[in-house]
Nucleic acid binder design. Sequence first.
DNA 1: CCGGCGTGTGAAAAAGATGTGAAACAGTGG
DNA 2: CCACTGTTTCACATCTTTTTCACACGCCGG
Lengths: 262, 262
Amino acid sequence: MTPQPGPIRLAVIDSDSGFVRVLTKRLEGVAWEHRVLPSAPPIEDLLAMRLNALVVDLALLGPQAWDFLERVCEALPGLGIVVCTGQSTVAQRVRGLRIGADDWVTKPCHPEEVLARVEAVVRRRKRAAPRIDTGPMVAGELAIRVDQFQAFVGGQSADLTRREFELLHLLAEGEGQVLQREEIYQRVWGYAMARGDRSVDVFVRKVRSKLERLSPDWSYIHTHFGIGYRFQPEPREDIGLPEGSPAGSSASETAGQVPRVQ
Amino acid sequence: MTPQPGPIRLAVIDSDSGFVRVLTKRLEGVAWEHRVLPSAPPIEDLLAMRLNALVVDLALLGPQAWDFLERVCEALPGLGIVVCTGQSTVAQRVRGLRIGADDWVTKPCHPEEVLARVEAVVRRRKRAAPRIDTGPMVAGELAIRVDQFQAFVGGQSADLTRREFELLHLLAEGEGQVLQREEIYQRVWGYAMARGDRSVDVFVRKVRSKLERLSPDWSYIHTHFGIGYRFQPEPREDIGLPEGSPAGSSASETAGQVPRVQ
DNA sequence: CCGGCGTGTGAAAAAGATGTGAAACAGTGG
DNA sequence: CCACTGTTTCACATCTTTTTCACACGCCGG
């Protein structure tokens, strides 16, 4: 349907020079960004590469192969993993797939097939973001232009950094949905969130503050206590507060009508 | 990490009786809902089955195999497709994967591996499209939306906190069943309940009170003295009956058919 | 009708999450 | 190497939720 996979960022962990050479050649043909690693790098390095997919020969990792596979799957749940290894038993293949590998190819194999399998794995992963309409998405006073990695209000840029933009973009795509912190982190940062990480909160604050500067009468990002955040443009009703009432005043009275908006 | 893939709805299109028999046996072992089709059904029929995955032997579809594959991929982009066929060329496999198949297994193959591959495909699909099939569950005037971690009545949020929601959700899932306090605690809090802990009671009260605000004419959570609680939406009948009949009404109900409603 | 438990109720105390500002750290380009 | 921008980490303020308590009430068995 949409054969257009776009450029894929791929790493190959293998030291079989013949296989690597021939695969690399094909990779250059399709212009994917790729990198060959002769042995398993630390997980953090893989994180930093922001990959779409990984091709790995488990055989060369020795006894820690399963452990490595497991840790990679856990840390990068969004990464497509294709194991490409010599002879293996059914039990091994089943184990690898159960642990979290997406595909398992047996060498010798044709590089074109490896590519097709990587493509299939990545394709499925990307289905989630099929936003094709080139037009900017508008919400309240906001215009979010994916092509510019920026949000505007009345033609003026909110001056968001890349992460800030990606966060806002993700939230805005799921307008009205409550997204959990873990999921947000996973999808914006690209890997699993460590417990106690406050990055999402911090960035929400930054985005809020930048949006508020340009669009003071609207609120966009709502907190769901104990869960995460929800994007939904709403005219701010900070009306009233005439005088006497101390700010502290109960939020409770307002409850019932509109879900709590912080 | 991915311990629980949950039940998968699967269809197998194949007429190779030996393969099908052995695969079916394994399918029953894992309790997936499955169906075997001896030939390609109309796309609409596949749609109606609301499948998670499809295993198909392209060989038996003859010359229209590619066309069938293409149409299925287009019509059901969320469906995981595993081609399971006898001998094939690299070019055929690449073609199939490019068209939209998620995996391609060559017969003869071990049923366990087919299952593992189906599982991997479905796992990835669920990660990619996290919120599509999550229809709200309705009960009485209540709509419980898991994706929002919230319950609504007539579009209005009950403003449940996370634990309150989880409690309600658990009870609602077992609609009509009496759940013991210990089990409720175990499943909502995640660990064993200490003796004398009243948390469950307290939260039941909070949920009841929040639900009653929005849906005063229904009662949802019923107490079973000495046991626990049961979720079951019932129109409240305490209206009328101004004086004559004491609330205690028919003791006969307690007979076990219709437990006491408090 | 009474007493013993188990549950309902309201409020206070404790625990936990988020908001906030600023400093530490990392990456880039001069 | 420095200056600069952006990201991550930290400590603390603020606010919400969860837990704990003490007591009232209702169910059940004498």
